[in-house]
Write a protein that binds this DNA or RNA. Sequence first.
DNA 1: ATAGGGTTAG
Length: 510
Amino acid sequence: MLAISAANSHFIAHLPASSNDPNPLAKPISNKPNHLQILKKCTHLIQFKQVHAQFIKTPLHQSNTYLSKLIEALVDYGELPYARQVFDQVTQPSTFAFNTMIRCYGTNNLGHDGIDLYIRMRHQGVDADNFTYPFLLKACSGLKQGKGVHSLVVKDKRFSSEIHSLTSLTTFYCSFGDVGSARLLFDSMPERNVVTWTGIIKGYVKQKRYKEGIELFNQMKNYGVEINELTLVCILSACANLGSLEIGQWVHEYTDRKRIFLNPKLGAALIDMYGKCGHIDKAYRVFKTLPCKGVYVWNALIGGLAMHGYGIEAIKRFREMQGNGIKPDRITFIAVLSACSHSGLVEKGKEIFHSMRKDFGIEPGIKHYGCFVDILCRAGLLNEAYEVIMNMPMEPNAVLWGTLLNSCAAAANVELAEAAMERLMVLEPCNDGNYVLMSNIYAVKKRWNDVARIRKIMKDVQILRNPGHSLIEVDNVVHEFMVGDGRHPCSEQIYDMLEKVVITIKECYF
DNA sequence: ATAGGGTTAG
């Protein structure tokens, strides 16, 4: 049964009777109650509970719209178990009621409960409708057990060509990285719209298959499918990761031409794209034009500044953001801490790292520790970095040990390098770079036996050395280079330029 | 009441 606490009934007993009182229970529930309107007036959890306590005695509480509104409201207040109690009191829940409950499980990452409820629904002979499978599939997001839903949808003639159910199925496959299955389904669909297209593009982008994502986007344009903000956000993310300035810029111009409003998420995606494509000035320009600068927008800018080595500027923006009443989140701290590490701001970095918990109530996660260790390592404070790694509240991963190993190579610190390497052989046994670094350190120290030992391990574990390579796109042509590669037609000029760059760097720092 | 959104340490 519903439990209304003593405090609550006290509250009911003393409700003022004046007619303009905002309290929904101020007016007694009349003979002809408009229960939906009463529900609409509720603004606090306690009021919803009280309203229901009154209605439970009447048949009204079985009404579909009433039930779904109440359940949704309760779930919004984080009262999902209570919402389920309300649901369970209904003697014959309709399809509508089941759909609502399943959807709430989905939005609260309780997929298994959603599946259980669906099974119960069918067990009780309640029929599914075209809303059921989109909700159920969203609940199944990331759960491979949900694959069975595919056959349920296909077997039912009503849904086997229905766009919402099928689109949900494709995004369901994407939710655990199976873009292949998503694509098969996508290609067989009788009808697709902007949501279907964006969903599959997002699937590719999430799997880092950026080129295929962009290819689909081009097809989408050719088919004349509508393109909206969400589509563009996905494409910008692909551009950012590919360094595809041209396409990214095209997107920017497109938003201009079509007068698409740069909402915070689209704005952040644009800033991120410009930052990652090397144009921090353009990122800045976009930033300035955005009318709403949410935390996403600030994060993208600070992250861009960090990447470009503008540490002081990043910290300035970090402060300015707070001055504007925007609360930094965990991503902000990753951005600002990496700004400190790339700019050698050790003291600032320490200060900000320690302020996370103290001033912002954000518990540092492993990535924050990663940045912090990087700050110490780049500053040459290897022992301090080692201490931090050893005393972290979580298990250090390969990134942490790799950071340390990298710096040990620069400083030729054998002891700490060995400590790091010992862990890396377990955490990342196939990473060729670690072995190469370790053997290089031994070589600097002229410890040839150890060099041979590492080489032997590499041979025994059959680690293939991956030659370093990089790609760059110029005028829509991708150029690829490998270590010591001389195949490029402009190879000679490229090496000449490289030498000049190295000389310039040396002049600056030595 | 249906399906799709950005940023994350070597």
